[in-house]
Design a protein around this nucleic acid. Structure first.
Lengths: 221, 221
DNA sequence: AGAATAGTGTCTGTCAGACAGTATCGC
DNA sequence: GCGATACTGTCTGACAGACACTATTCT
């Protein structure tokens, strides 16, 4: 069966892949290898393939696997972007997701890939992004911030074991502001998703207790 | 230009159109006039038409105009539903929106339309809905409730002039629980979006002061 | 007067912010 | 001991819930 191309929009998925490193909250950007906008920086994205994807979320996971080389533990839909002029190929829809990458997997990103990629400042990306990806990034960041602001714990960004100070620094990186230690820890007392370990991280000063996320925890309020 | 149909998913928009009447929060359902699922009840929806729509939101407004016969003041995206099996026509994407219809425009709905439609209980629809529209309705309702729970005022559902008791009943209908009058009114004191009028609604007992929404108010927290 | 609805006042518990204070490490 | 980091205690103000109270109308 063949139909007119003009009757069907191009369907894409784009992903804002966030991580938190020493510099703060970062987002992955890749240099486009193909037209349109070849050579410019953009959020990783790709065309939906109905023959192999079973859902849009599945397509986003595949794109991350193919272009970035990692399995992502957490992916969430943000919203759609659509219209006749946002992509040179014609009427298009982008379904935007955001994903969270654990701190200990940052190094693995892009290992087997040839395309240039960069971890850019999520709030103020150094690169001018292609398409409407600057707006997409703002929306993804706002959605993520809103969730953490509403007291969801971004445990997907943490390694298996972490200290509460680690977790606080991660939240601060997302929100872009400092949190009060006492308030933060008081809130955590009521969390079902945190498990206390009998281990301590020994560093330069007083050892800090280690915690881990409950298996099957939800990134929710 | 012609391309294989299998490479392009069907792109649809569906809308949960809410109103509040004497019975509570209702959602519009229509009886499908065409295959697939002909004769079954569903949320109003339609196929994106890239030749006339300039965005998905625009497509949703057009569908409401065509199938329901009203201009909707407020439309908001909820999320997408996608996959190969949710529609008999093949791999499909539905972008779900919810819309709010002012109390005084309920009567106008479906006047010039032949298709059967019904205002169904939004929390417990009487009809068994086609496709995955039952899940879509649950998501739309959850999104709307979340917003009102977070103290957004559903002014889009109100007529031009209304009493605070009216507004409270509307919030209660959405949330499915009663609110405390004193708490509700205390909150409204700080609202920038409400304007006091020098008019009163005279009813069976003590007259109630009338209010109106600020022009250009946002349905936000 | 009494019922009904509109609108206000007040007590209380919870929780966030602020910040001081204590504990335990390395040096 | 001293600096640094981990962790706790406490005061306060904002606000939500509960509920009693006053105000104004109709019958």
């Amino acid at each position: 069966m063949s139909v007119s191309r003009e009757l069907f929009p191009l369907v894409l998925v784009d992903i804002a892949l966030f991580c938190v490193d020493q510099r703060g909250l970062r987002v992955l950007v890749v240099r486009r290898a193909d037209e349109p906008e070849k050579g410019r920086w953009a959020l990783p994205g790709g065309i939906l393939k109905p023959d192999i994807d079973v859902s849009l979320q599945d397509a986003a996971l595949r794109v991350l696997r193919e272009k970035v080389g990692v399995e992502i533990p957490h992916l969430e839909e943000v919203c759609t972007f659509s219209g006749p002029d946002r992509d040179a190929r014609g009427w298009s829809i982008s379904v935007l997701f955001y994903a969270l990458l654990p701190r200990n997997e940052i190094e693995a990103v892009g290992k087997k890939k040839v395309e240039a990629l960069d971890w850019s400042d999520a709030a103020r990306p150094a690169q001018k992004l292609a398409f409407d990806h600057a707006a997409q990034l703002r929306r993804a960041l706002a959605t993520l911030r809103d969730k953490v602001e509403r007291h969801a714990l971004p445990l997907h960004l943490m390694p298996e074991k972490f200290t509460l100070t680690d977790l606080q620094r991660t939240c601060e990186a997302i929100l872009g502001r400092e949190l009060d230690k006492s308030v933060f820890r008081r809130r955590l007392k009521g969390s079902e998703d945190l498990l206390e370990l009998d281990e301590f991280e020994r560093g330069a000063q007083r050892p800090a207790q280690l915690w881990k996320a409950r298996v099957g925890f939800q990134f929710a309020v």
